[in-house]
Design a protein around this nucleic acid. Structure first.
Length: 564
RNA sequence: CAGGAUGUAGCUUAGCUUGGUAAAGUGCUUGGUUCGGGACCAAGAGAGCGCGGGUUCGAAUCCCGCCAUCCUGACCA
């Protein structure tokens, strides 16, 4: 591509509506532009990168025996009603009506449509297995879009779905996708970890996520110092290492704690530590008030809590609901005498003579013991934290931030049963189809790579993702020899099927170098004063390393760069 | 959804407290000098200050409403 005749611009300053280094670089490099909250334009230079991402994904999917098709994004609402997910997605779905007032949604993910597709063909056990995928736009009305392309409301996803006649078949299909994903993210050059995760709104038997390690990642990737354990923080088990407190149980006592409605306030008022407390959180689970009772030094893990309750929506109660449940204002809730279901973290069972709210303004109880209240259920309910140990080997856990770039779900028969996707087995008996679903966010991959590969001068794309693998800078546009030789080289490359970026703009050399670095072209050829002696300069973006190359050696070098 | 902040030229921002009809850098145009690391000089084009209303002789500046963007967030009871 010749820059002299292209839509292309770069910015010298950061955009005021971008919040991360990498999204600012993508904007400054003229690759993307925010149109509205969580909605982006992908400009020509960015589209090139996205195409490279797409190419890798499609290539590996095809190599792994998947068939591509294309589904609509505009979908009748009943499709999600019949699977029960209209409700579970709730306001995360964009919903609209047509002119006849019939309800539609913009698809956030496509398990249902693929199940319908499968039902059109998969009637016999002989039809399995197969694997369908698409690269298509998804719509999700996220609460808070963030970090450029990382969390957006409209994005392109590669979603694949496998169909098998039994669980063993699903295991094979899943392993195949696992292999494809490893190859895909390796080819993108991403530094990633594979973690166990919550199955969430997708449901099913197993979920694993590919997490690109990054400080702006919204997920916490838990690893282990001693073994290969890795897991998303939201489902990581808190290993119960507390010893039973052997103290004598003391008599229950109500104490006056004026205006001390937080653990910090009460602990400083009483000269105690958070671990001497047991805190009680009032939540609203699908409209019902419930209480969670936890060690004072720990946080509630809402994923574990929702799962225990089987709740679709779990929100912290507001002041009014707290008053309704406890009779007191926020800050004085406790399990003693509380008339709503109480769910207790299992570590609380080791404690004795602890402090809790008294369900009365400005009062707490001390010397509370297990005999003083009755939990509805006891479970692991808290977030893992620094210092916790590995559930697998007992060594110390590690914590990193990750961007979820891909995921694998072993769905089992959840959707096929809901959508009546059945086949006849060898005994002429109807059986549900076993499904898996597998997603990759394409823009998110692009953003994650940008995040992992940049320096103070701009982006540093790996060869396979760069908008152009190599670029040519003509230093002096008035030097006919430079212009002629550069164009000759450019045309030669083109004839070999290699599209280089030719900067033939009437700009000073410095501007061209800066732009080439900002957009992250990995290999640069500088046609400057050396051309008179038949030489050009070859520069590597990654290291800044410069080498003089004779013009006649360029074709060989080009072949090397393009792995030919 | 809640709370906070912001909205002025393509971009980044100043001006708003103390109302008088908009400024700078960058980008863009033209001419000249430069020419291997975001050049310099000169002359220009470009916004009527998010939208709507109000107060006032007069509003980017004050008041009300709306919209948008950004930040933070169920603060741990």
């Amino acid at each position: 591509m010749k820059l002299s005749n292209s839509y292309f611009f770069t910015l010298r300053e950061n955009a005021k509506d971008e919040d991360s280094v990498s999204s600012n670089l993508l904007v400054r490099a003229g690759m993307i532009k925010k149109l509205a909250n969580g909605i982006y334009m992908i400009l020509p230079m960015g589209k090139k990168v996205l195409e490279k991402v797409e190419y890798i994904v499609r290539d590996e999917m095809d190599k792994h025996g998947c068939q591509e098709l294309l589904m609509p994004a505009l979908i009748p609402e009943d499709v999600y009603v019949s699977s029960g997910r209209r409700e579970s997605f709730g306001s995360n779905m964009f919903a609209l009506k047509d002119r006849y007032n019939k309800p539609y949604v913009l698809g956030p993910t496509h398990e249902e449509l693929f199940a319908i597709t499968a039902a059109m063909d998969g009637k016999s056990w002989k039809d399995f297995p197969y694997n369908l995928y698409q690269i298509q736009t998804k719509y999700r009305d996220e609460t808070r879009p963030r970090y450029g392309l990382i969390r957006v409301r409209e994005f392109i996803m590669k979603d694949a779905y496998t169909f098998d006649k039994d669980e063993a078949g699903l295991d094979v299909a899943y392993a195949n996708m696992y292999d494809a994903y490893n190859k895909i993210f390796d080819r993108m050059g991403l530094n990633y970890k594979i973690v166990r995760a919550d199955t969430g709104v997708m449901g099913g038997l197993l979920s694993e996520e590919y997490q690109a390690i990054s400080s702006i990642g919204e997920d916490i990737v838990v690893g282990c110092e001693g073994c290969d354990f890795s897991s998303n923080e939201e489902i990581t088990e808190v290993v119960d290492t507390l010893q039973d407190d052997t103290a004598q149980e003391l008599p229950l006592e109500k104490i006056y704690t004026p205006n001390a409605g937080t653990i910090e306030a009460v602990s400083s008022f009483l000269g105690k530590e958070p671990k001497d407390f047991v805190k009680t959180l009032i939540y609203c689970a699908d409209g019902k008030l419930v209480a969670f009772v936890l060690p004072g030094e720990r946080e509630l893990n809402e994923t574990k809590a929702s799962k225990l309750l089987g709740a679709l929506e779990l929100t912290l109660a507001d002041a009014e609901q707290v008053k309704e449940a406890t009779g007191a204002r926020i800050g004085f809730a406790g399990p003693v005498g509380l008339n709503i279901p109480i769910y207790m973290d299992r570590q609380v069972a080791h404690k004795k003579n602890f402090i809790v709210g008294a369900n009365e303004d400005d009062h707490h109880y001390k010397n509370v013991n297990l005999k003083d209240f009755t939990p509805t259920a006891v479970a692991d309910l808290t977030e893992v934290m620094e210092g916790d140990i590995c559930p697998k080997c007992g060594q110390k856990l590690t914590f990193e931030h990750g961007i979820e770039v891909g995921n694998l779900f072993k769905l089992g028969t959840k959707y096929s049963q809901a959508m009546n996707l059945l086949y006849l087995d060898q005994n002429n008996k109807l059986e549900p189809v076993w499904m898996g679903s597998y997603g990759i966010g394409l823009e998110r991959c692009m953003a994650a790579v940008a995040d992992q590969y940049h320096d103070e001068n701009g982006l540093m794309w790996p060869d396979d993702l760069a908008p152009f693998r190599a670029g040519i800078v003509i230093v002096n546009m008035k030097d006919e020899q430079q212009v002629e030789q550069a164009n000759k080289f450019y045309e030669y490359a083109k004839s070999q099927g290699m599209d280089l970026l030719l900067d033939d703009r009437n700009e000073r050399a410095g501007v061209k170098f800066k732009d080439m670095e900002l957009i992250g072209i990995p290999h640069r050829f500088t046609f400057g004063k050396g051309v008179a002696q038949g030489k050009v300069e070859y520069v590597l973006r990654k290291t800044g390393e410069k080498v003089e190359v004779a013009i006649e050696d360029l074709p060989a070098l080009l072949n090397k760069i393009y792995n030919r």
